[in-house]
Design a protein around this nucleic acid. Structure first.
Length: 111
DNA sequence: CAATTGACGATAC
DNA sequence: GGTATCGCCAATT
């Protein structure tokens, strides 16, 4: 049962869906988990298509420093921040407080 | 069809 | 230690 789909994007969607409530992860972490550590940009690009994919909590995916770089792609201006705060994550100035504390590592959790 | 951009990250300087 | 540049690969222009 090897679901090694060549669909890099599809895998990104699957991992994104696995992000638990109140947790966040990074593009690089997902990319690395998929075997494309240096293709963090592709994860972000894949997320771009997540708008057509229901159930993709893209607001739980931020860059490595815990900055809400993708908030501009959401419907509103601060929708992403509100969603995160709604899950118990403190966000100030587009940056997640205690980011590493809320960081969800696919290696550690999915391993 | 070639060049540019893009929700990033790491390395070089 | 901060700035600059390259690498990734796909999509848009």
């Amino acid at each position: 049962m090897n679901e090694e789909n060549s669909n890099f994007f599809q895998k990104v969607y699957e991992v994104a869906k696995l992000i638990p409530y109140g947790r966040v992860t990074t593009y690089g972490a997902i990319a690395k988990y998929l075997g494309a550590a240096r293709s963090a940009r592709m994860v972000g690009w894949a997320m771009n298509g997540s708008h057509n994919m229901p159930g993709i909590p893209a607001h739980r995916v931020v860059n490595k420093i815990g900055l809400l770089t993708g908030k501009h792609h959401f419907d509103g201006t601060n929708l992403m921040q509100q969603l995160l705060e709604s899950e118990g994550i403190q966000v100030v100035d587009n940056q997640i407080i205690d980011f590493e504390k809320h960081f969800w590592d696919p290696f550690k959790e999915l391993s």
